[in-house]
């Protein structure tokens, strides 16, 4: 065992850059003591029917700008922001970007410790992280927010497939190996192990692919422009290009494919018939082929396959991967013109 550790350490040693200045054991203590003054506790609407009336946020300017999560908690005339030193100030909503689920508040104070939002760290899988938030509302008054420790479990897109997560945010996210996403944690800060801001903790979210709770943070780099625009008072375009469907989408009928009847909740998309002279016939598709992928995205059922086709313009290429026996066959189809 000891040998294992030694080997690992020696391997590790050769890879560590020489810029590290912190001393083991004390490093987290120092880092955390520097980060805590930048974290705020936010109290607002809610408190009824299991809706918490609190969340977390952090300072991003010396003049009192606070970045937090956009939620019902902010939907009130009086938002209370409690600084790390216990000062309770009124937070005024500067602006919000509901698509990114962020909001910026402003408190009236000066010379505040804060994160530099344009110097955010980018994290990789395996990076150690610290999460700062008022989860479960346990910190009150001048108590500091709670600190959690973990690592980046994955860097993935929250909308790798449509409808996977119930959030309007569709960009990359840090999935965390730590139980960070609990009531009140939304809007908290995720830092690397040196205390550099990296992400904003998301809301409680269930991964609909496997029905598990997801612990995640949105990279600050993805939010930088939006935050600057909000502070500058610029309005942001509110059109979500990814949700746009073409006016004339491709259909299976156009390609000459008839699938088996869709009778189950997840009927596998087996081809029943191929129309004579159709693009599908020319491409060599057969009855009994099982359609697996549409333009690289898995089609686990007929329902999903039809939804995928709705987002492909009829003038565009349709790449299908089908299974015939144990072989995977890829074909490219175009709907006939006109």
């Amino acid at each position: 065992m000891l040998r294992t550790i030694l080997v690992a350490l020696i391997v590790g040693l050769t890879l560590v850059p020489g810029t590290v200045r912190t001393e083991a054991g004390e490093s987290y203590v120092q880092v955390i003591s520097q980060v805590q003054p930048k974290i705020v506790k936010i109290f607002g609407a809610g408190g009824l029917r299991g809706l918490e009336h609190y969340q977390s946020g952090f300072l991003i300017s010396a003049e009192g700008h606070v970045l937090t999560s956009w939620s019902y908690v902010l939907d009130t005339d009086y938002i209370s922001v409690v600084l790390n030193d216990g000062r309770r100030l009124q937070g005024n909503l500067v602006g919000a970007d509901p698509r990114l689920e962020i909001a910026v508040l402003k408190v009236d104070a000066g010379d505040l410790p804060h994160f530099a939002i344009d110097q955010a760290a980018t994290l990789r899988v395996g990076d150690r992280v610290l999460a700062f938030s008022n989860l479960f509302g346990v910190a009150a008054g001048d108590e500091a927010a709670s600190v959690q420790h973990g690592l980046v479990a994955a860097v993935t897109s929250l909308a790798a497939r449509r409808g996977v997560f119930e959030t309007p945010y569709s960009g990359p996210a840090y999935v965390l190996d730590a139980m960070t996403n609990n009531p009140g944690a939304a809007g908290g800060a995720l830092t690397d192990r040196r205390g550099r801001l990296a992400g904003i903790l998301g809301k409680e979210l269930r991964n609909s692919l496997d029905n598990t709770w997801l612990n995640y943070a949105v990279p600050v780099r993805e939010l930088e422009t939006a935050v600057k625009d909000i502070i500058a008072g610029k309005s942001r375009p509110s059109v979500d290009n990814t949700a746009r469907k073409p006016a004339q989408a491709v259909t299976l009928a156009l390609l000459g494919i008839t699938l088996v009847p869709d009778v189950l909740a997840r009927t596998p998309p087996y081809i029943d018939r191929i129309a004579t002279g159709s693009p599908a016939e020319k491409a060599g598709l057969h009855p009994d082929d099982l359609v697996l992928f549409v333009n690289g995205q898995i089609a686990p059922s007929i329902k999903v396959l039809n939804e995928q086709l709705e987002r492909i313009d009829r003038i565009d290429e349709v790449r299908l991967t089908v299974q015939r026996g144990q072989d995977l066959i890829e074909v490219s189809l175009f709907a006939p013109a006109g």
Binding site: G12, L15, V16, G18, V20, T22, E23, A24, V125, G126
Partner: peptide, 19 residues
């Protein structure tokens, strides 16, 4: 000493190498 003492960095590297 300063280099070696960054235990968290070493752990991070070791975990990454294992994965």
């Amino acid at each position: 000493w300063a280099e070696e003492a960054d235990l968290d960095g070493l752990e991070e590297q070791a975990v990454r190498a294992a994965v």
